[in-house]
Structure formats: structure tokens, C-alpha cells
Design a protein around this nucleic acid. Structure first.
Length: 134
DNA sequence: ACCGGAAACT
DNA sequence: AGTTTCCGGT
């Protein structure tokens, strides 16, 4: 449950959207729905916006969730420097992993021999630590 | 599709 | 604080 806690509000156990996005990106079963962009570090493409919104809505118990609302939440990350939009590329966003690059570089280049859960866990911890520093 | 203000919710 | 909801504008 540590992964679902916020740095700012330790009491909150609600999962945050960018955690959820990383979680989906970590699992092969969702590669047809959302996936890392080949070559671009930290960049990902939402291949099925409706499905991502549906999954997010299910997690948060918000059945009325859709991509319009989800994308608004993503847009709030721009000022927070968690994400930014890749302009010109449809449904494409990019994580700000500039500091993570120094801390934990070959994270996304790793082979699939490692446990998905562990990779995701490592990713979330590293990102959280970076966010706390920044 | 994408943006971002405004208000409401937890 | 982190969304969710709604929406006018580009």
C-alpha cells in the first residue's frame, strides 16, 4: 500500500493517475492499450483511450470516467512537471525522467526476465524519490 | 484532439 | 491536494 500513498498527504491511500499509468505500462497484457514509445525515453502512447479511461474508472470506482476527463487530469501534471505532451503526436505523452536518468538509467531497457511486479515496484520507488527531491 | 479555467468533490 | 466534472475556445 506504500505505493499508493502520496508524498504530500501520507494519509491518502488512493492511487494516483501517474502511478496507475506506470502500472499499466509495466504489464505486457496492456501493451495493446498503452505502451512505451520505442526510442523515446519516458514517452508513451495511449493506443486505446477509451479502454485506459475505463480501467482508470474501474480502479477509482468512477464508472463515468472517460478520456476527456482523464486527459484533463494528465494536463494538470504539466505544471507539476510530472508529464508533458508530445506535440503533434496523437495520444502521446512523456514522463519527466530527467533526474531519474541519473539515478536509475537502464530501467526501461531491461529485459523481461525480471518479475514485472519488481520492475514496476522499482520504477515507482525511484520516481517517487526523484519527485520528492524535485 | 487538445487546452486550461472554474467549481465541486473526497 | 489530486483529481472529477463541465465546458468554451483553438
Amino acid at each position: 500500500d506504500w505505493a499508493y500513498k502520496t508524498e504530500s498527504s501520507p494519509g491518502s491511500r488512493q492511487i494516483q493517475l501517474w502511478h496507475f499509468i506506470l502500472e499499466l505500462l509495466q504489464k505486457e497484457e496492456f501493451r495493446h492499450v498503452i505502451a512505451w514509445q520505442q526510442g523515446e525515453y519516458g514517452e508513451f502512447v495511449i493506443k486505446d483511450p477509451d479502454e485506459v479511461a475505463r480501467l482508470w474508472g474501474r480502479r477509482k470506482c468512477k464508472p463515468q470516467m472517460n478520456y476527456d476527463k482523464l486527459s484533463r487530469a494528465l494536463r494538470y501534471y504539466y505544471n507539476k512537471r510530472i508529464l508533458h505532451k508530445t506535440k503533434g503526436k496523437r495520444f502521446t505523452y512523456k514522463f519527466n525522467f530527467s533526474k531519474l536518468t541519473v539515478v536509475n538509467y537502464p530501467l526501461w531497457e531491461r529485459g523481461s526476465c525480471e518479475q514485472p511486479w519488481q520492475i514496476w515496484k522499482t520504477a515507482t520507488v525511484s520516481v517517487s524519490q526523484v519527485m520528492r527531491k524535485g
